[in-house]
């Protein structure tokens, strides 16, 4: 696979992994290794001495070649997201920030206005800005214009497993974008990740589908293969669709029928 370029960074893996919802830290670490992901998301949380073992920085820093992409989850406004980004950069030492601003806990849909505002500020400050957005081609273009390094339209609602329900809009975003388009949220199965890559996505971000699988490491490996297959298929050139059958074998009769 050719490298995925995000800012000044390059990655050979096009599967980005979320680290939430795993049953344990060891299960998460095993899945990260199996996924061969080089970019993983993490979230800021208040330290709790009773749950100090949940801190992920130590365990993740033992995986070689891994870059952290903190998210701004919990932020309901641009101001809160910018604050979270500053704290996260301090902690991670990474310039990556996943801007995620969803004020409504019932649907977790990203707020496009606050997202745009936060991205504009953070891109100007030198962050590699990766916004989680509704699948809106106009917003995607506006975010590209303010210096985002990618846009990450949702496939469907976070954690819903409803797959690529925004497929048509994501295709429009890909067609119009000069920056990598990454489907983030809603994917349930490796086949959906493969379809996103065949469509022309530069990468996919998967969390719940892997974290809640019966065997997260095996599912992570399955997603990795699907992403690679989809990417290769896209580059190989998919055949055009036809409204009618197009024979693959000669249709001339030769078994001695009439003539």
């Amino acid at each position: 696979m050719n490298a995925l370029r995000l800012g000044s960074y390059t990655f050979s893996s096009r599967l980005i992994l979320g680290t939430g919802k795993f049953s344990s830290v060891p299960a998460m670490i095993e899945a990260v290794r199996a996924s061969k992901a080089q970019l993983v998301t993490v979230a800021l949380r208040r330290f709790n001495r009773e749950q100090a073992e949940d801190d992920l920085f130590g365990p993740l820093s033992e995986i070689e070649g891994l870059t952290l992409m903190p998210n701004t989850s919990g932020a309901a406004t641009a101001k809160e997201a910018v604050k979270a980004a500053h704290i996260s950069r301090e902690l991670s030492g990474s310039p990556f920030i996943k801007v995620e601003i969803h004020p409504n806990p019932h649907h977790l849909m990203p707020d496009p206005i606050e997202t745009w505002e936060a991205c504009k500020i953070l891109a100007a400050e030198g962050f590699i800005v990766m916004p989680y957005i509704p699948a809106d081609p106009v917003l995607a273009k506006r975010l590209e214009e303010v210096g985002c390094s990618s846009v990450m339209p949702l496939g469907s609602a976070i954690g819903s497993g409803q797959g690529l329900s925004t497929s048509a809009m994501v295709q429009l975003i890909i067609r119009e974008s000069s920056i990598p388009v990454i489907v983030d949220a809603g994917l349930r199965s490796p086949s959906e990740a493969c379809a996103a890559m065949e469509m022309g996505c530069a990468a996919v971000l998967v969390n719940s589908a892997i974290a809640v699988a019966r065997d997260p490491a095996a599912m992570a490996s399955a997603f990795a293969k699907a992403v690679e297959a989809g990417y290769d298929a896209r580059n190989a050139g998919l055949m055009p669709r036809s409204g009618s059958a197009v024979a693959t074998s000669p249709l001339t009769s030769f078994l001695g029928a009439s003539s």
Partner: peptide, 9 residues
């Protein structure tokens, strides 16, 4: 505020 990284998507 004392903050750490926890799991998140």
């Amino acid at each position: 505020e004392i903050l750490v990284f926890a799991g998140g998507g």
